[in-house]
Structure formats: structure tokens, C-alpha cells
Design a protein around this nucleic acid. Structure first.
Length: 156
DNA sequence: GCCAACGTTGGC
DNA sequence: GCCAACGTTGGC
């Protein structure tokens, strides 16, 4: 089972929003690399929920893929900020998965902590300048972060 | 609010 | 196909 990370600005859509709604279409992604990663997701895959542009930025929860990639409904909506005039229902350009809430982490694991961990140095989210909003997470990275969240803040 | 890094667009 | 200009992301 693969693991992933979804970024969201909490002012736009937070872990609390997902907890309340239970499930949502991860619409609005307009980056080909992120789209391709979503197309590779399988139902049941688990993902971290990351708050970007937050104070502090970091991983706050876990969600799971509830539906495989399907055309992103917002691309056809002329009133949506994510409308794409070049996309048609016959030839949709953008796809997205549905995600469901699983849990909040016991505590936020901040970007600062992620950066401080040698074991996590390969993660896209800690790369300077990485703007990819959907990212793969290696199994070892997943375990490490879950452990960090459980054991509390650490300087090691 | 600033600005570096990045992806996309479009002129040529 | 190149690359400058532009818009966006996201940490700080």
C-alpha cells in the first residue's frame, strides 16, 4: 500500500474541515505532476494531511483515498476559480481522487522537525522550493513520522 | 509583506 | 525549441 502527502492551506481547507465533512473531492489541483500522482493512487492508500502557509506549517492528520482518480468537476464549472476552458467532459485535463478523514495526529509534526530528521531528508516537502502539492511518501518515512507524532516533540 | 523557487505561457 | 515574462506557491 502506497503512502502520500496532501498539502492544503488551512484557510482554504483544513483538517478540521475534512473531519467535519468526512470526505471530499480533492479538486483544484492544476499541476501535471500532482495530477499524475493522484492517478496512481489506489483506494485505501493512506496520506498525510499537511497544512501549508500555516503557523507553523506541518503534518496535522491522516486521510485515506476513498475513490480513485476521476475527472475534477471544477474544471467544467465556468464559475469556479479552477475552471479550465480547454477541458471538456469528453477530454478532461484534470483528475483528482476523493479523500476521507482518518485521524488527527496526536500533535502537529512541524516542517521544522521534518527538516531536522536525517531520515526524512529525501522527502519532497522538506526540499527547498518544493511546491508540489501532492507527494509520495516512502514507507519508512511514514513510519518515522507516525512515531514522531506519538512520542511527542523531540530534539533528537 | 517579502521574495526565492518553480511551472506555464507565448513570442520569436 | 528557446527563453523571458509572468503568475503562483509557500516559508519566513
Amino acid at each position: 500500500m502506497a503512502h502520500w502527502l496532501f498539502k492544503s492551506e488551512p484557510s482554504a481547507y483544513s483538517i478540521d474541515d475534512l473531519a467535519r465533512e468526512g470526505r471530499t473531492e480533492w479538486s483544484g489541483v492544476r499541476n501535471y505532476q500532482a495530477r499524475n500522482l493522484m492517478k496512481a493512487m489506489k483506494v485505501g492508500d493512506q496520506a498525510f494531511f499537511y497544512h501549508s502557509n500555516a503557523t507553523p506549517p506541518g503534518i496535522v492528520g491522516i486521510c485515506r483515498v476513498a475513490a480513485e482518480a476521476h475527472p475534477d468537476s471544477t474544471q467544467f464549472d465556468s464559475k469556479s476559480p479552477y475552471h479550465d476552458a480547454a477541458s471538456t467532459p469528453e477530454r478532461p485535463r484534470w483528475e483528482c481522487v476523493d479523500v476521507a478523514f482518518v485521524a488527527r495526529l496526536p500533535r502537529i509534526v512541524t516542517l521544522e522537525e521534518l527538516k531536522a530528521r536525517r531520515e526524512l531528508a529525501g522527502m519532497a516537502v522538506v526540499q527547498r522550493g518544493s511546491r508540489l502539492s501532492v507527494q509520495p511518501v516512502a514507507a519508512a518515512e511514514w513510519k518515522h513520522i507516525v512515531m514522531l507524532a506519538r512520542q511527542g516533540a523531540s530534539n533528537g
